[in-house]
Amino acid sequence: MVIKLQSEPINAGEEINTFLASNSNSGGVATFVGQVRDFQEQGAGESTCVSALELEHYPGMTEKELERISAEAQKRWTLDAALVIHRHGRMNPGDAIVLVCAAAAHRGDSFSACEFIMDRLKTQAPFWKREHSSTDSSWVVARERDDARAKRWEKVD
């Protein structure tokens, strides 16, 4: 289980290659990359341009929460390794904001663990997005559908 929190850009290709090399005996490796979007949903199909994203977090708790989520994933599925890298600070559209890799003997475990880590992270890890456009900036509002996605995993318990 490796957790990294960084303000520097995430080089997803390089990180994934390193992860693959160190888990070359795993039959299935699932990877997920979340990228900064260049638009902001305004509801009713409307959107405005986003020029930059700022991500605030709770130093100390963020690391602990990511550790807790990864440990929970390891308890639920048989994993050889997992990697979570999350960026904070200011970033640009197209930048990777989060990278999750899960390695397992079989694809089912790696797919499920990767999705579980992302869903939990969205509703548990203390990060807050602020989107900047050419005219103003605003805090991103949490969405109910993210809670619903995270709740799906409770049924498994």
């Binding site: 997920f32 990359v33 979340g34 990228q35 979007r37 991500l55 977090h57 709770y58 708790m61 999350h86 904001i97 989060v98 992302m118 992270l121 969205k122 509703t123 548990q124 890890a125 203390p126 990060f127 807050w128 997005k129 805090w139 991103v140 509002v141 949490a142």
Partner: peptide
Amino acid sequence: IAFFPPVTGGAW
């Protein structure tokens, strides 16, 4: 003790 809005990290 920390107070904050619902979290909004990760991907969209």
